[in-house]
Design a binder for these strands. Structure first.
Length: 597
DNA sequence: CCAGACGTTGTT
DNA sequence: GTCTGG
DNA sequence: CCAGACGTTGTT
DNA sequence: GTCTGG
């Protein structure tokens, strides 16, 4: 888990955050600050800003360290894979007791630190598909990720190597749909915890140990109590401090770096699908958006927009971030080349910077961070700042934007209804338990998913969603298989079903986001009644066995199959043998959906 | 006592 | 460095 | 974390 | 497959 983070802020901005967050101000200048690069795609082995205590000056300091813990006893450059293995440290590996690992015993006592990140990426895996999601603090503050570091003097290297590992723990209930592990986050407002964690004179104890648990931080957020957004009627809700949403697959490759990766993403084909989904429901009359009435596309159920091919050549947006090894950079800009940094350099002035108002002052281009939440701002940044703003500013997208706005309001209304239904059931016309229609749709969609999977040849879908579907999983599957036999030849039919499935998946994902936001420990009935995260993929059913690599006859000096631990002295890496890998199945599937108009 | 390993995640 | 295994 | 490379001998 | 690079 947590093998990729985002840190696109300029040093000055990070300083601002720290001044407000840490119990006491850290030193103005960082150690090895020249190693800092902004990046929205930070991978292991990269240098990142770490907060640690400086025992001599008895103060905090930001120190650029390399991701991937190399323990102090290491003398020769460790094997690559061993470094990779120690980018994380499991919480229970630090515990006192049998699960505690020797490797961490020094660090956990004397070298605890905090990684500063805007957020982290996680890939949701379903079968062979991997979909990137981004998680950040809802309030836009920096994440304080609990970490440990160490110093190693590597033979032949001048400087001692400072490296770190982030600490992982079980995923919180809000995140376990995505992954089973998550980084340990230290609450930004808890000076005591921060102080204790960073205290170099405090050796490991049970109090520190209890800090290593999933993030359960909540934040108070004001929301409209009435669906039409009467600003006088506000309510306060506790929302999970983190928010998570899908992001652009371009983040997969570390060669790419774009702030877009930290924004909600939906493919251009999905845009269309999405609009189709919402078009199915007629816009409500209370629609406050007037102007162009009923666009022509409304009449056509099949073609909403001419699919505009996604511009492939926007490469300049995804610059090579060539961190570290002083290799040639594609751009000739300064090392800090984020918008934020440019802004910083241009103005050199952060007097107006208001911590509470997030960073919008410094970074006007970031639509996600549209200043502090306004009184009448909608709850769901996914819709508000994300998907809508993800569109281009041409006519077609303008139209889509309009449609999305309609649907957004509709969703809002539904959400408010659901809330009031829960809070005062007697006044509600909408039952909390969602109507059969909903379940029917879900069932239908799931069945279609299975059909699609089967049609794909080797897929079999996950079991029905608990509490939403009935238990007739087996029969349903069989029915589906029989069903498909009669209709498989209808290509059009398949395409349609696939389309519907996609519609549903996206809609479910949007709704699911609402549920996450609306999470409340007393509110289990509501949570249970609504949709879980999107179930839109598969478990592989028939594993195609691969042909094993050729014999070793050509390679007398057979390398050891698996190398052992290599923090000690190293041998020369064995020569790899083998063959070309087969094409990425996940990519194929993704492309398939992309091209499915 | 000495020698030698020491870490994580994902997969099925 | 520090723990486990032999 | 994911993407992408992965080899040798002989010759000038 | 397995390793390195970023």
């Amino acid at each position: 888990m947590c093998g990729r983070t985002a840190q696109g802020l300029a040093p000055a901005q990070i300083r601002q955050h720290l001044d407000k967050t840490l119990p006491s101000k850290p030193a103005e200048s960082w150690i090895d600050e020249d190693k800092y690069r902004t990046s929205y795609n930070v991978a292991p082995t990269r240098y990142q800003p770490i907060v640690r205590a400086d025992a001599k000056t008895n103060s905090y300091v930001v120190h650029m360290m390399r991701w991937g813990l190399i323990p102090r006893h290491t003398t020769s450059m460790p094997d690559y894979s061993s470094v990779l293995k120690s980018i994380n440290a499991r919480d229970d590996s630090l515990f006192t007791g049998p699960t505690g690992k020797a490797m961490f015993s020094h660090s956990k006592n004397f070298k605890r630190c905090i990684l500063l990140a805007e957020g982290f990426y996680e890939w949701r895996r379903r079968g062979k598909e991997r979909v990137p999601f981004y998680t950040k603090r809802r309030d836009g503050n920096l994440m304080l990720m609990a970490a440990i570091y160490d110093v190693a003097q590597i033979q032949g290297q001048e400087e001692p190597m400072y490296t770190y590992a982030t600490i992982t723990t079980n995923a919180s209930p809000q995140l376990d749909w995505l992954h089973d592990r998550m980084p340990v986050l230290i609450p930004n407002n808890d000076h005591e915890k921060i102080r204790a964690w960073l205290d170099p004179h405090l050796s490991w104890n049970s109090a520190l140990e209890t800090m290593l648990k999933p993030c359960d931080e909540f934040q108070e957020v004001k929301i409209d109590a009435k669906e039409d957004g009467d600003p006088t009627d506000k309510k306060t809700k506790s929302l999970y401090a983190l928010e998570t949403y899908q992001v652009d697959e371009k983040v997969n490759s570390v060669k790419n770096d774009s702030q877009e990766f930290t924004k909600p993403w939906i493919s251009s084909s999905n845009k269309k699908t999405l609009s189709r989904f919402f078009m199915a429901k007629p816009a409500t009359p209370r629609d406050p958006i007037k102007s162009p009435v009923v666009p022509k596309v409304l009449d056509n159920d099949d073609i909403l927009f001419t699919p505009k091919e996604e511009v492939k050549g926007d490469g300049d947006k995804y610059v090579n971030s060539s961190q570290g090894s002083g290799s040639a950079t594609l751009s000739s800009e300064s090392p800090h080349k984020s918008d934020a940094q440019v802004k910083d350099e241009d103005t050199g002035d952060f007097d107006d910077f208001a911590f509470d108002e997030e960073l919008s002052e410094c970074d006007p281009d970031v639509s996600m961070r549209t200043a502090k939440p306004d009184e009448d701002e909608v709850l769901d940044p996914k819709l508000e700042g994300g998907i809508l703003d993800n569109f281009n500013n041409d006519e077609e997208d303008e139209e889509l934007r309009r449609i999305m706005e309609l649907s957004r309001r509709e969703h809002e209304q539904q959400l408010h209804q659901a809330r009031s239904a829960y809070e005062s059931p007697e006044n509600s016309s909408t039952p909390i338990d969602q109507p059969d229609q909903e379940d029917d749709e879900m069932k239908k969609a799931l069945e279609l998913s299975r059909l699609q999977a089967i049609a794909d040849g080797h897929n079999e879908f996950d079991p029905p969603i608990q509490g939403v579907l009935d238990q007739s999983e087996a029969t349903e599957t069989e029915t589906s298989e029989a069903h498909i036999q009669s209709e498989a030849d209808t290509e059009e039919e398949l395409r349609r079903k696939e389309q519907e499935e996609f519609d549903r998946a996206i809609a479910a994902s949007l709704q699911g986001d609402y549920e996450n936001h609306d999470y409340d420990d007393k509110d289990t009935s509501l949570v249970g009644a609504l949709t879980p995260p999107p179930q839109s993929s598969s478990t592989s059913g028939s594993a195609s066995s691969m042909v094993s690599p050729g014999s070793d006859s050509m390679n007398p000096t057979t390398p050891t199959k698996k190398r052992k631990s290599s923090f000690g002295p190293q041998s020369i890496p064995p020569s790899p043998s083998g063959k070309k890998g087969k094409p990425n199945q996940a990519a194929k599937i993704t492309d398939f959906f992309r091209q499915a108009q």
